[in-house]
Amino acid sequence: MYGNAYIDPNEKANAMLAGEDPIKLAEFEARIARGEKIEPKDWMPKEYRKQLIRMIEQHGHSEIIGALPEGTWITRAPGFKRKLALMAKVQDEVGHAQLLYSAAETLGKSREDMINDLITGKSKYSNVFNYPAYTWADACIIAWLIDAGAIINQVANAKGSYGPYCRALDRICTEESFHLKYGHDNVVTLATGTPIQRKMVQEALTRWWPPIMHFFGPSDKISSHTEILMRWKVKMASNDDMRQQFLNMYVPKIWDLGLVIPDANLKKNEEIGKWDYTEPDWDEFKRVINGGGPCNAERLAVRRMAEEKGRWVRAALLRKDEKYVTPLA
């Protein structure tokens, strides 16, 4: 489950290519233009490596942290079948993190360094997970709509240029399709259920709509920086385009259930084929991504606790002759 990596719009494009060998750079760009993938030991610009590590790492962290608000509902999920399904989903999310961390590792950042950067708050993860899942219906809305958003992002990124990331995403997307069906099934059950169930799912949707609109990130500034990342197939679609795609696919499905989306301006502009909506509150987005959300502190504290409690086991299992080499693919 993941939105778009947050790219600092103030980063300067001219610094991106500084010091790169022009011949190697041309070969690299030609390879991508031919639709070929880049593999770990290939020559690549420093900035390509840096942006991919940051992006894949954030994606991995999002899977781990995203499992926390959902994991808490396993014991309270209504019925045995839903407990099993939610356990399977949470296991998938943690598995996705491992696939993604592995892909980032091939670019030269160790898994230890990535975990350290997560638990100290240096690395970001998807902002939506800084909000709590108050009720079972919140967990259902997450499983349906947040995973839906994640699939849109991941399907786009799976066509990117870095081989290990694409391979991880192909596997991830297959599994996410189960999450989406499972989440939809849960929301439909509540929305077509008793008045209390309907009220519960409506309230959860109302709570989650602003974070869902934040999910793909603010409008991309059309900068030469973004242009280069798109040419290198690191960034595959603009944040606004992905948000539009999400609205196009899911607003009708939400309306089908007679649920109310808390945005009076939300409607499809048939002339241009795009959705009008109230601009999300980006100050709130920035406040939360920088640590001010309701659950930021809790998420990281729980993650640190887990890491600390497992440390002695890992230390006991470590053999002296073990030697780390970077994974091949």
């Binding site: 808490t72 709590p132 890491e307 230390a315």
Partner: peptide, 29 residues
């Protein structure tokens, strides 16, 4: 909000020592 997390009684500032090299072991293909 989560009863399981409440039971753990975690401090928000539970700083831990950074993971050291090999904490996550070597890799297998």
């Amino acid at each position: 909000l989560d009863p399981r997390i409440k039971r753990e009684q975690i401090n928000e500032d539970n700083t831990i020592a950074p993971l050291t090299e090999m904490d996550q072991f070597e890799t297998y293909e």
